[in-house]
Amino acid sequence: MKKSDIPQDESALKGWTREVFYAKNDDGKYEAGLSTGWSVKKDALDGAWDEVNKNVEDARQQVVAGKLSPIYYYMELRLMDVGVLAQYVGFWKWRVKRHFNPTIFKKLSDDVLQKYADVFEIDVEQLKNFK
């Protein structure tokens, strides 16, 4: 690739940084250049976010329908899986999974809820009163 062909498409890098890209200069020698982004990459990243947003919306509906607890919703919203969430709150995975059950969730102490709230960076109230 020639330095003049380094893609300069609009992307999520906008307003933050440009990325380094190695390409050939006019003398045919490699040199570092800068790129504002590439549409092919942008589309892949946008696709990944569409999937995240879909999962979050699915989770929200399941919580509203009373099938899963708000902990599940916030886990999805924060892009976590059970393994990551369990490490952050410091519980075993099976215990976190139990807390997805709305009946068990309702009986959780404020201390336990506070741990989740801290990890999700929200108030306990937002867990208790899911909108």
């Binding site: 590439w38 092919v40 990459k41 589309d43 892949a44 990243l45 696709g47 990944a48």
Partner: peptide, 9 residues
Amino acid sequence: GQIVRMQEE
């Protein structure tokens, strides 16, 4: 899409 992200992101 994931391949391309791993490849180019």
